[in-house]
Design a protein around this nucleic acid. Structure first.
Lengths: 244, 244
DNA sequence: CGTGACGTTGACTGTAGTCAAAGAAGGTGG
DNA sequence: CCACCTTCTTTGACTACAGTCAACGTCACG
């Protein structure tokens, strides 16, 4: 049961038991990766894709001075670099944040799925386009929101993603990353990130410390973030945890 | 010959004459859209996708005050909202900038292509993931570059895309958009955009006026943009115009 | 107990936003 | 063909948000 959380909360119901078995059948063995390790580097030809079973990974790009910009944060249930399959090489680096459990799937096996299982193929395609939708939302946040808004947005989105796979109860969730990581995701310095988190805390909106987040006032958090979860393509807003 | 420019410069050679004919066969009639018109609105169910034959289109999102953030700019040869096929609704609005010639393709016809032409399907998938790669690059630009850098980046990317379809000679190209549009793409105000364009002009790097751009010093433009075109997945840097 | 990573705060700087006004360019109708 | 209007561009003065630099606190771990 490797792909238990794949598309969970997002069209998971369209994955037939048969599709799921086909997916399991093409996967390699489960592996563990250490924290803070770059797993795939940009521009290298890739011949497999990575599914994240547990842990946090990120995709990032460095600027000329080596400063990072995160372009995606991945959690349990994400097919992290499935886009590498049609693209053949990545335009960015992929790294772990925490220790991670992953499986890889060889691209020639995916070719077989493309041939024999068009419906599953369309769902795989769908999962890569959800990532693109999230990219767009980040563009919006970076382009139009101020620092607090971006931070608020990041937490709204991350909480929703974690909730979809049962890792948030809607209020509290573990997010074992540093303020520097957050800054790299939101396009602000770690110093300023610290100040924004203080503001959110003092306003009674959000608490984040030691890798744990607590939403104190969701309505105001979402308002600051201009957050509308439609772009996450959730089946419904998942309130109770449930397995498909 | 509707899809003459589809994937031109990017794996076009992998499109067999057969694939191409199959694609032509599923397209509706060519239509013309007026300038500055929203064509598809976010959250509406979509049952067809749009291929842009000629003109400029953009995808955008509004913030609470109605200010726009462009999330993509599309030119000749782009399958503008193909991602609407797996996604079923868009998370943003799609609009014309100039008058546009388009064709649409019904999604049920794309289902047929998925069933019968896995290789073509993979190329369609690929084309949507190039868009995602461009999204990531925009995230990088918005998160890590200052205003001049973002503007420079926008012009590097747009020139490269236009060159791939024969609409730029590497130095001069038509780009019939306003400074306000540019600002909405780069996440800066139109006033500041005007100042950045003046700076680039006075530094002898780039001239942009009246919808026409001229690159005066490519090396310095790309340097300011921290531009590396790998993310555009071009076959090669197309110097001469050529048809596949 | 020392070290390094992470978090916190303050003072100062600078980039970009805001507000306002006016100049060009282009289109339309009289 | 000109007058008018709108849209786009340009510039200046002022503001404010976020970056930079620096120092210090705190905690976990070896």
């Amino acid at each position: 049961m490797i792909f238990t959380d794949f598309l969970r909360g997002r069209r998971r119901h369209e994955l037939t038991a048969d599709d799921l078995a086909a997916l399991e059948a093409v996967a390699n063995d489960v592996r563990t990766l250490p924290a803070r390790q770059t797993f795939i580097r940009q521009h290298e030809p890739v011949h497999f894709s990575t599914y994240l079973i547990e842990g946090l990974m990120c995709r990032y790009m460095d600027d000329r001075e080596g400063l990072r910009q995160l372009v995606a944060l991945h959690v349990t249930g994400d097919f992290v670099d499935l886009h590498g399959y049609p693209l053949r090489y990545l335009d960015h680096d992929l790294a772990t944040i925490t220790p991670c459990q992953i499986v890889t799937v060889p691209h020639e096996r995916l070719d077989q799925l493309m041939e024999n299982r068009p419906h599953l193929a369309k769902l795989l395609w769908f999962s890569t386009l959800m990532d693109a939708a999230i990219h767009r939302e980040w563009i919006f946040a970076l382009g139009r929101l101020d620092a607090v808004g971006r931070v608020a947005h990041f937490f709204c989105e991350t909480e929703a993603k974690l909730r979809a796979v049962g890792l948030s109860d809607g209020r509290r969730f573990a997010l074992p990353i540093t303020q520097a990581d957050l800054g790299e995701a939101c396009g602000i310095t770690s110093v300023h990130m610290n100040r924004m988190l203080r503001d959110l805390r003092e306003d009674g909106i959000l608490r984040f410390w030691g890798g744990k987040a607590e939403i104190l006032d969701r309505a105001r958090l979402e308002r600051r973030a201009e957050f509308d979860p439609a772009y996450l393509y959730l089946d419904r807003l998942p309130v109770d945890s449930e397995r498909a």
